[in-house]
Write a protein that binds this DNA or RNA. Structure first.
Lengths: 160, 160
DNA sequence: CAAAACTACGTAGTTAACTACATATATGCA
DNA sequence: TGCATATATGTAGTTAACTACGTAGTTTTG
């Protein structure tokens, strides 16, 4: 085992992950401003998902973007108020509300493309380091699927 | 440039960082329960910091743990209510409030040590992947210090 | 075919961070 | 030496996620 995390590393990991995430989000907001477009980073997951899969229900979107459905609902409300998306009942299943991008939403996506492109480039240079963070996240997610942080701790405790 | 992030990667990064951080925190909580100790993950940064540097002011703690001082104050209130820390005015500078661990706090740290040890081991196996996440975070933080996500985007835009 | 279980959506309340502002004390300099 | 600036702490209000719970339709099953 060559990579050892000490206790101050333990201190760091969760808060640093969160701060990094915050920082990226804030800078994202400033980049939209730089391009003079009225768009907030938090809108991205829903808009981009609906751009790729044009008709989805509330829970389907929640799963795609990885939020809980109540969080998703409040995002959807905001986007409907902005008239970027609209919804209609599913005729074959009256429980479902189906979301689509509006014309305004689609136009915004087209406007956003160069901005996203710039972000992708910027983020790529930022994360082009010897330990690639995206890959690291994927790898940790895979490891957690095999065995969670908690399960590993359980086993270690049992051996004590 | 070998590591390229596409737009769905862009979608992923901020939310995935945050989810990973959440997941670790939740599992941390369960690990404390496993050991039967009354301790919450969010207390760790303050307690551990005061364990290493026994007397600190509010802002000093905030800087050490990387939170804003209002967030830190509310954490400190909680810890004072738990009687894990206590505070006194600095006699040479009446503006300052100096925090220290109580006897209860110190005893808790001793109790916590084996738990933290298990966590460190567990986390080490979890993150012992080819792209090490702690190193990746450090590297990205370094890159951001050289030039932020926003600054990089500015330069890319200028060249368009 | 009615009751039970499940699914989809929605609301309410909580949490843990933040920013912006307010107050008190300390310091530096004209 | 007293006014301007800086520092330390504190409060209020906001935000964006969450969990828990409720309701209304749908499906399954005894």
């Amino acid at each position: 085992m060559h990579n050892v995390i000490d206790q101050s590393g333990l201190l760091a990991i969760s808060t640093r992950l969160q701060r990094l995430s915050d920082q990226l989000r804030k800078d994202g907001q400033k980049i939209y401003e730089l391009y003079g477009v009225a768009f907030e980073p938090k809108w991205f997951p829903v808009i981009y998902t609906l751009y790729q899969k044009p008709i989805l229900s509330v829970v389907e979107i929640a799963n795609e973007i990885g939020y809980t459905h109540p969080s998703t609902i409040s995002l959807l409300k905001e986007l409907e108020k902005q008239k970027l998306i609209r919804s209609k009942r599913d005729k074959t299943d009256e429980r479902k509300r189906l979301l689509v991008l509006t014309e305004k939403g689609n136009m915004l996506v087209e406007q956003m493309k160069p901005v996203w492109n710039t972000m992708v480039k910027s983020l790529t240079t930022l994360t082009d380091t010897s330990n690639n963070i995206m890959k690291a996240i994927e790898e940790v997610e895979e490891e957690m699927e095999k065995q969670s942080f908690y399960q590993r701790a359980q086993l270690i405790k049992r051996k004590e």
